[in-house]
C-alpha cells in the first residue's frame, strides 16, 4: 500500500485520513484514500451521507478577461452563465465562477486529461488576459454526498442547497462554517452531492467541521472508491 509520506502530491488532510485507517493507492500521480477498510459499508453510507477527500485529484482554474474565450477555443463546453457548472464529455466539470474566471474539476475516474491538456496548452502558448490559477495547490477538494448532504450543509451554510433550490450544476460561492468555499451541486447517479473547495490552509479545519456536522445524520468519511462506484452507476 502506498505511503502518502513518499509522495510529493498528497492530500492536505492525509494525516486525518490515515488516523481513520485509510488505505491509499496511487492515482493521478498522488496518494488517494481508496477506502477505510470497509468498502461495502462506505458505498452504502454514501447513499445516506458520506464525505470523501478528492484533494489529490487534478483541478485547475483560469482567470482574466480572455479566460473564457480561451477555454471555449479549446472545446470546453458550457461556461454560458455565472455560477453554473457543466459536465464535459471527458467527465470533467467546468464551472464559470465569474465573467472572468472558470474552474475545471477533473473526472471522478481519476484518468482525467483535460486539466493537464489545458495547462500544457497555456504554458506552451501564453495568451494575454488568461492566467492559470493553481487550484490543486491552493484549494482542498472534498465531496459531501448522500440523501442527507443538504441537511448537513444547512447546519453550516446560509444558502439553501436543497435540490429544488440548488439543482445539479448550481454553484454557490459562499461562507461555509465561517470560511469561504465554492459549493457545486452534482448528481452521482441517484446520489446528490456537493463538491466543496476552500483554502487549502484551512483544509484540516474544514474536514473536522464537516465530519462533526455529519455525525447528526450518521454520516462517515468514505474512500474514493465509494464515490467512483456511485459516479459509475450514472445511467447512460
Amino acid at each position: 500500500m502506498p505511503d502518502p509520506d513518499r509522495y510529493t502530491r498528497r492530500s492536505f488532510v492525509y494525516r486525518q485520513l490515515a488516523a481513520r485507517g485509510a488505505r491509499f493507492r496511487r492515482l493521478a500521480g498522488a496518494a488517494v484514500a481508496s477506502d477505510f477498510g470497509r468498502p461495502e459499508d462506505e458505498r452504502r453510507a454514501l447513499e445516506r451521507l458520506g464525505l470523501c477527500d478528492l484533494s489529490p485529484l487534478p483541478r485547475v482554474g483560469f482567470k482574466g478577461p480572455a479566460a473564457l474565450d480561451w477555454l471555449r477555443g479549446r472545446r470546453v463546453g458550457g461556461l454560458a452563465r455565472d455560477n453554473w457548472a457543466d459536465a464535459q464529455t471527458s467527465g470533467a466539470l467546468a464551472a464559470r465562477l465569474a465573467p472572468t474566471e472558470a474552474l475545471i474539476l477533473g473526472s471522478l475516474t481519476g484518468r482525467e486529461v483535460l486539466c493537464a491538456r489545458l495547462e500544457a496548452a497555456l504554458d506552451a502558448t501564453p495568451r494575454p488576459g488568461c492566467y492559470k490559477a493553481m487550484r490543486r495547490d491552493g484549494n482542498f477538494h472534498f465531496l459531501l454526498g448522500g440523501a442527507h448532504a443538504a441537511d448537513a450543509m444547512a447546519t453550516l451554510c446560509a444558502v439553501d442547497l436543497r435540490a429544488r433550490a440548488f439543482p445539479a450544476g448550481s454553484v454557490a460561492q459562499t461562507s461555509v462554517a465561517r470560511m469561504s468555499m465554492i459549493v457545486i451541486g452534482v448528481a452521482l447517479g441517484e446520489v446528490p452531492a456537493f463538491h466543496l473547495l476552500g483554502d487549502s490552509a484551512s483544509a484540516a479545519y474544514a474536514w473536522g467541521v464537516l465530519v462533526d456536522a455529519m455525525a447528526e445524520f450518521e454520516g462517515i468519511p468514505v474512500g474514493f472508491d465509494a464515490v467512483r462506484h456511485a459516479a459509475g452507476a450514472r445511467p447512460g
Binding site: D82, N83, A98, A158, V159, A172, Q173, T174, S175
Partner: peptide, 17 residues
C-alpha cells in the same frame, strides 16, 4: 440577519460582505 443582493452571487447574508 440582513440580506444584500450581490450582482454576481445573488442574495447573501450581510456577514459575507
Amino acid at each position: 440577519m440582513k440580506i444584500l443582493d450581490c450582482p454576481l452571487n445573488g442574495p447573501r447574508n450581510i456577514s459575507e460582505f
